[in-house]
Structures are given as structure tokens and as C-alpha cells.
Design a protein around this nucleic acid. Structure first.
Lengths: 213, 213
DNA sequence: TTTTTTATACCGCAAATGCGGGAGGGCATC
DNA sequence: GATGCCCTCCCGCATTTGCGGTATAAAAAA
């Protein structure tokens, strides 16, 4: 069983070295490299070939978020564990969007660190509870506009609406669902009535917003 | 220090009772009630006054997701921990949207259960690593599609597109933006050309997806 | 200053859409 | 057997859209 290769990006010398020794000294892990900044990021990673990158958010030069984007683009298989001092909503949000797989605080215990590294490596997404709560909160904010009104659409109607919100015209829809153009029109009439709309765009809008599809 | 009050909703009798004894038998916890379904949900909760609700997703009658919505509406301070057998994307998504604060699998160990309950109570959001990963994945899917392509829309064009994705017709748009119907049409032509679309719906779709607005 | 861009506005025509109606077949429920 | 629901298809007509022009004036850029 080969060890999990970890590369560290952390500007604080003390923490960086502590982590280096912690990881190197743990059975089953191997700290392939430790950097203070993201200069030559891609080049360094090509050499290091890590399984997991431990990335600080606050860093001089290129910040952690930018680095995550680049890493995910160039080495999509690499798992990234973010570490930060603060509970900053924006940072969490951005890191998650950029493609980080885990998010822990620097106050985490050494054992916690090692568990988290193992977890991201195995496909999990470790987060300290409060970070997770923030992610969920963001998630709820950004996605909840999910009206739950039931419009009683029939399967066929849903199918057609599905196609409509892909930008298809009636003719194309008819083709896809295997009905005649006229039939599609009939369905649309019914859909409009059920959704209480009277135009193409309104239907698309409503369908997308309320996730009726 | 008063104990954390937990109410269980779980249709499986064996698991329900196991959890009941587990929670009751743990220092600092108190299982205020355990139900097999969500009948009289609100009434029962008023009596139980739990701090944390342990909710099964798959249940006869009202399912767990619906229950979460109601609980969060009626008792917003109550923390909800979902439990499920499966890793079903839709369920996770819906539960999170509905307002669940944590999400664990039934295969979780007794200690894991207790930790999770404590965690939600304290404002965290425990999730098994793989669940967290799925939530993040959903998050990334739903939020990142932030197209960075620049379509070079002029202010007026953006304004008009803005209106279009509200479901307005050209006439109505003309009225809102204070231009003539014909002018709006001209702008639309240009917008379509810039977005590389050729229908109403496609434009709305693209505008919404890429958040050009 | 000349050119380009933006916003304004109109005409015309073909196509698509919205809306009203009618009509038959299948299938399940009552 | 009757009723209701869903899916199917068609007709007609008024309106809206998509797309091709043309054109003017102000503003911005060259």
C-alpha cells in the first residue's frame, strides 16, 4: 500500500514545517513537498505528483482560491483540502466554487488534520461542523427559491416542458417526444393553463425557478 | 447543564428503539419521544419540545423531506439531522433545500450518531464525508455554471434582456424601458446575434444560465 | 475630423406562437 | 356502461417573433 502523497502550500514557516513533520511522520502518508507560495505552481506539482494538496487560503502572491482553480484545471484528480484561520463566508463560497473538496480550520488538531487528509483522499469532503453549516446556508440561500407549488403536470407535459426549457421550438419538441406538431401545441396549451402563463418565456422562467422539471 | 432533547422519527421499529435507548442512555442527552411516522407532526413536536430532531427520509405517509419543511417553518430553532440508507442525490439535495442541518447514513456507528447529534445541536452540520462531497458537487454544479464568456452586451441590451427573462413580451418591454416597440425589436435582433441564439427561449435560457444579466 | 458604436425608429414578410374550438382512442375508476 | 383523464391529432385566426432591410442622430473612439 503506497502512502498518500501530500503537498503543502502554506506561507507561515512554523505551521508549514510542523505540518511537514506531522505528515512525514505518520504511517501511510508522505509529504512530497512544502511551499510557501504558489510560484511555479504547475511546475512544482508536476514534480511532486501529490494525491492531496493542503492549501492555505491567505497567501502572498497568488491566493489559495486562484491556485485551486488552476490545480483543478491542470490536475483534476488531485484532491484539495483548504485550510484557513477565519470563517469567512466569501472565502468558503469561492473555494467551494473553485473546486476544493474539503475545508478545515487551522485550529484543527493534528489528528484532525490527518483524518481530513485521509478523508479527501478517499473521496470524502471533511469540513469542520461550522464550515459545513455555512456551506449549507449558502446552498440554501442560493438554491432554495424552490417553489413547491404543485402544478399537476402529466408526464407528457413535463417531458415537453423539459424540452422547452432547453430552448427547443415546438417542431423540434414534436420530433424529440415523438408526437406530431399539433399534439405538442395542444400540450403546450394545457401546460400554459396549468402554470397560469401565456408565453413561451414565462413558462421557461417558471419552470426553471420552480424546478417543476 | 440540561440535556439535549432529541425526538426521533423512524419507521423501522428496531432502529427506532435502538436509537431511543442509545440516546436515553447517554449522559447529557434525553430522548423526548420516538415516532414511527409524521402523523400529528406539529402537535407531537409541541409536546416534545426537542432541540434536535432525528428524521428518517424514507417513511410511510408524509416523507422526511416534507416533514423537514414543516418543522423548519413551525419550529425554526429546532435542528434537524437526516438519516438515510441511500446516497441519493435528489434526496440529499431536497433535504438540504428543505432546511436539514446534517445528513448521516444509517450505517453510522452509535458513537458517530451521538457526535452528530451533539454537532447539529451546537450549530455544526455533520455529514459523512461522502455526503459532504455530494453536497459540494451539487453546489458546484448549481453555482459555478457562471459563464465567463463576455457577450459584449450594451447597457440597453442588458436592460432589455433583463426584462425578457421576466417573461415580458416585446410590447411590454418597450413600455418598461421607454422605447418604441420597433426599437426593442432591433435590440433583440442584436442581442440574438451576440448570444448566438435564434429564439426567445434560447435567449432566456442562456441569460439565466450564464447570469449575463 | 472621420469612423464606429449605440440607441432610436420604421417596413415587410415568413414563420412561430397563443388561443379558440372539435374529435377520437385508450384506460382506469366508479 | 358511463365518466373522467390522458394522449393523440387537426383547423383557423390573430398576434408575436425572427430576420432582412433602411435610416437618423447622438455619443464615443479613431
Amino acid at each position: 500500500m503506497k502512502p498518500i502523497r501530500v503537498t503543502i502550500f502554506e506561507d507561515n514557516k512554523h505551521l508549514r514545517e510542523s505540518l511537514y513533520y506531522l505528515i512525514s511522520g505518520t504511517e501511510g502518508f508522505c509529504c512530497s513537498d512544502a511551499f510557501a507560495d504558489c510560484n511555479d505552481l504547475v511546475f512544482q506539482l508536476k514534480k511532486s505528483m501529490p494525491d492531496v494538496v493542503l492549501m492555505d487560503i491567505e497567501m502572498p502572491g497568488m491566493n489559495g482560491i486562484e491556485a485551486v482553480k488552476i490545480i483543478k484545471q491542470q490536475f483534476p484528480q488531485v484532491q484539495i483540502l483548504m485550510q484557513t484561520v477565519f470563517h469567512d463566508d466569501d472565502n468558503i463560497f469561492n473555494a467551494v466554487c473553485a473546486g476544493a473538496s474539503g475545508y478545515i480550520l487551522k485550529t484543527t488538531s493534528p489528528e484532525g488534520y490527518m483524518e481530513a487528509i485521509k478523508d479527501v483522499y478517499e473521496g470524502g469532503s471533511p469540513m469542520t461542523g461550522s464550515v459545513a453549516r455555512k456551506v449549507l446556508a449558502l446552498f440554501q440561500q442560493n438554491v432554495t427559491p424552490k417553489g413547491n407549488t404543485d402544478y399537476q403536470l402529466t408526464p407528457k407535459e413535463k417531458e415537453i416542458l423539459q424540452q422547452l426549457i432547453k430552448g427547443k421550438s415546438y417542431k423540434m419538441i414534436a420530433d424529440v417526444v415523438g408526437s406530431s406538431y399539433e399534439t405538442v401545441r395542444t400540450h403546450m396549451k394545457n401546460i400554459y393553463a396549468k402554470l397560469h402563463v401565456n408565453s413561451n418565456t414565462e413558462a421557461v422562467l417558471k419552470a426553471l425557478q420552480e424546478k417543476i422539471v
